[in-house]
Design a protein around this nucleic acid. Structure first.
Ligand SMILES: [Zn+2]
Ligand SMILES: [Zn+2]
Ligand SMILES: [Zn+2]
Ligand SMILES: [Zn+2]
Lengths: 164, 164
DNA sequence: TGGCATAATGTTATATTATAACGTAACTTA
DNA sequence: TAAGTTACGTTATAATATAACATTATGCCA
């Protein structure tokens, strides 16, 4: 199934992930530079770890990867959580609430509320960036002022359905 | 703003919550009876605690309330988590992922995927039970088979906006 | 350039949320 | 009542997250 503007479900499709990864890293650098905010080495390390795959990672999993390098001294949880806090605030990373995990943003710079499809089979997560208009309508109908929205759909991607 | 079939935002409106509470408890009892599943004393205790308000509660907060009664011996976390597991499985309680908290279902028996409006001001949560058709369409367009959906909208309810 | 303010990182300890593992009691049904 | 099953109780520990404070790096201005 080819990717298109409507669906943007690249995560579940076979693709050149090296390219995917480096494109997102470049975009991140550019975004930070243009906004004059600092993508420090630590922050970039954490982002790179998250961009390795389309599977979300827990904070301690990221911590583990940081500490895999025996040359440098071990770091503690706050290091990771602070880098994540920054990346979340800039919109380079999203939190997957139903998994207490984090994933690199697939559409950096797109301000619209993200929605996620989470496959229980391959554990990959696809990020959609459609405006959630029907929800916004619903909310405004009752006078509710939206600040942030979490939309996480769990199920099976096409490939995992085929695999049984 | 009056409640209506479209919006069902009772939680943010002034209402007779005593009535609200007892109605939901009755519904729960009836639902369990009709499905021949056991709403034991513990499970009912936990449900009643959750039905006290429209604010979600953490598991340890529930635990605290259970242990407030000095007549009976203290209980430990698994007691609460197991009661919650049951209530979640039956659909009498929902989990608010973005708060790691739990809330009594406002529409017991309605099978459709719930959506929540979460006010940052009063911390109340309103449950909508509209079918999330646009999301389902989106998902099916990319061949994704939905199992469970989490829709949690954070913001300010009408009253909290008015309060400044 | 040196000194100051701020931002980022590092470190230690601890809070909060959740589950594993195993034993006991209660209910069900034959 | 015996056997099987479900629910409850208890202890210990895992997994996730943050508070508090010390240190280092960066940016800015005199
Ligand atoms: Zn990729
Ligand atoms: Zn899959
Ligand atoms: Zn009520
Ligand atoms: Zn409110």
């Amino acid at each position: 199934m080819p990717s298109n503007k409507t669906t943007q479900c690249l995560a579940f499709e076979h693709h050149d992930h090296q390219r995917c990864q480096s494109r997102l890293l470049s975009a991140a650098k550019q975004l930070c530079h243009s906004q004059n905010i600092r993508l420090t080495e630590r922050r970039e390390q954490v982002l790179q770890i998250l961009l390795q795959s389309h599977q979300p990672m827990g904070a301690y999993e990221i911590l583990g990867q940081l500490n895999q390098n025996p040359d440098v001294s071990m770091v503690a949880p706050p290091i990771v959580y602070r880098a994540l806090e920054f990346l979340l605030s800039v919109g380079l990373v999203h939190r997957i609430e139903c998994k207490n995990a984090f994933i690199g943003c697939a559409h950096p710079g797109h301000a619209s509320a993200a929605q996620f499809l989470i496959c229980k089979g391959c554990e990959k997560v696809a990020e959609l960036d459609n405006p959630t208009t029907s929800l916004q309508q619903e909310a405004s109908q009752v006078g509710f002022m939206i600040d942030h929205s979490v939309v996480e759909i769990t199920g099976l991607c096409a490939e995992c359905q085929a695999d049984g």
